[in-house]
């Protein structure tokens, strides 16, 4: 478990979704809890890709619902 990945995903979510850092927990659902829309989720994934210097697969991105999903997707690519 790398906290660095979570911290990066959290900072991207704070910036893109304009939410407070404490709202971004591992269990938080991007749509239900953090107010993401289909377009802001795409924007968020782009920000995470940039911040982590990874290229996330489109099919994996489509299955991301929670912060934990996003972190695991990133970890699988680094």
């Amino acid at each position: 478990m790398s906290d660095a990945v979570f911290e990066t995903v959290r900072s991207c979510a704070v910036e893109v979704l304009q939410v407070a850092p404490e709202e971004v927990t591992m269990e938080a659902d991007f749509t239900d809890h953090l107010g993401a829309t289909s377009l802001t989720l795409v924007e968020l994934v782009m920000a995470i890709e940039e911040a982590c210097s990874v290229d996330l697969p489109d099919d994996g991105v489509e299955s991301v619902r929670t912060v934990r999903d996003a972190c695991e997707l990133v970890r699988a690519r680094i």
Partner: peptide, 13 residues
């Protein structure tokens, strides 16, 4: 952005 970093970095908005 597109010229420098490719299609995948163009904002969905």
């Amino acid at each position: 952005v597109r010229e420098a970093r490719g299609d995948k970095r163009v904002s969905p908005f």
